[in-house]
Amino acid sequence: MTSSPISKIILDGREFYVKRDDLIDPFLAGNKYRKLYSLLQTPSSKFNKIISYGGTQSNAMLAIAAMCKTKGWEFIYYSKPISQTQKSQESGNLFESKKLGMWHVEIENDNYKELISSLRVNLDDKTYIIDQGGADESAKEGLKVLANEIESENLDISSLATPSGTGTTALFLALALPKYKIYTTPCVGDVEYLKKQMSALYKIPDNLIILEPSKKYHFAKPYPEFLSIYKRLFACGIEFDLLYAPAMWKSLLEQTEEKVLYIHSGGITGNESMLQRYKTKGLNL
């Protein structure tokens, strides 16, 4: 794959660069492509089954489904029970993942943690488990490729930004680019949760700066200010996802001043269902 392009935008009077990883592939794009890079280079014959787990709005879930479709691997995804409304939706990440062949298994809340903890027991050598959100040390290889692409551009910037679920992308990008300042913000849980997730993979480097949101946001819940940022960015000519990007852009606008390169995380396939949720809540689209 050739290096993803870089766009320049003006948002609220500030100049930003955007690394267009969203253009890599409709489903297998953004930071999920980077996280799965190592597996994408793996011969199809090495595995026949991939297992993962998490929420049904997950961008990682859809990316893994796309990868498994390409590789001819079976994909089993575990989640907690979901509503009938979610099951009947004909758009969004769950719908697209199932179209790609994903087998979705719901586990009752009381049994969920135990089931996830037991996944690696008696695992055969043809099955590979990807932890929630793609939080895996194998992601390091793909983030190193991204780091090399960024360095080769010789941009007049020393600060990058990428939102965090598990923090895997931000962590390995910071490790690969020690001369750059890497901004991130927690989109799932709080700062302490994010630090715990990253520390489970590697020691957090000094150049990784976590911007704490101005208020507590619940993941995937519609917020007027998030929709506002989404629309302002869209007016700049780029569509960003509604789950992670608004929180990161809001923190950047409020807490930084310098020129920043934003790493587009992809995930815009989930916007159709999220925009419908905004509409249902009566928020102006």
Rank of each mutant, 00 (worst) to 15 (best):
E114K: 14
K195P: 01
G72H: 10
G30W: 12
L252C: 05
T256E: 09
M198W: 05
F95H: 15
F16M: 06
L253G: 04
C187W: 03
N109S: 13
V260F: 07
D206I: 03
H264T: 02
Q197R: 13
I263T: 03
T56Y: 15
D131T: 06
A247D: 00
A65L: 04
S83C: 10
S228F: 10
G266I: 07
Q255T: 02
R34P: 00
S88I: 04
L243W: 01
L62E: 05
K32A: 09
L227P: 01
P178F: 12
C187K: 03
E141L: 14
K80H: 05
V260G: 05
R120F: 00
D22A: 06
H104N: 09
F172M: 04
D206W: 00
L23I: 04
T256W: 13
Q276W: 01
A139E: 03
P81G: 11
A139R: 04
L233S: 04
Y193R: 05
I238Q: 08
L40G: 10
L201Q: 08
H104E: 07
I24M: 07
T169Q: 12
A174N: 02
V145A: 09
E15D: 14
Q57C: 02
K144R: 11
T269F: 12
S91E: 13
P81H: 13
K203A: 15
Y183H: 11
F95K: 08
A200R: 09
G54I: 09
I76W: 09
E258N: 10
K99M: 08
L94A: 10
G55D: 14
D21F: 07
T184C: 11
A139M: 05
F226Y: 12
R14V: 05
C187Y: 06
I150V: 10
S83E: 08
G282L: 12
E151L: 12
K35D: 03
V260T: 06
Q255I: 02
G134V: 06
S214N: 15
K126Q: 14
P163C: 11
K221P: 00
S158R: 10
K98N: 04
A147S: 07
I10R: 13
Y183G: 02
T85S: 11
K231V: 02
E272H: 06
Q89E: 14
L143D: 01
R277F: 00
I51E: 11
F219Y: 15
Y77W: 06
L173A: 04
A235I: 01
L115N: 08
E149I: 03
I82S: 08
I50S: 12
I209C: 09
N93E: 07
T127D: 12
L155S: 02
M102A: 15
A29K: 11
P186R: 11
A176L: 04
P5Y: 07
D131F: 11
K87D: 02
I116M: 13
I157W: 09
R232E: 15
E106P: 05
Q89F: 12
Y17I: 05
L39R: 10
R120Y: 02
I116H: 05
V191T: 15
K126E: 11
T56G: 00
E141I: 14
T85E: 15
Y244R: 04
I209M: 12
S138E: 07
Y193N: 12
K46W: 02
H218I: 13
S79M: 11
Y37M: 07
I116R: 08
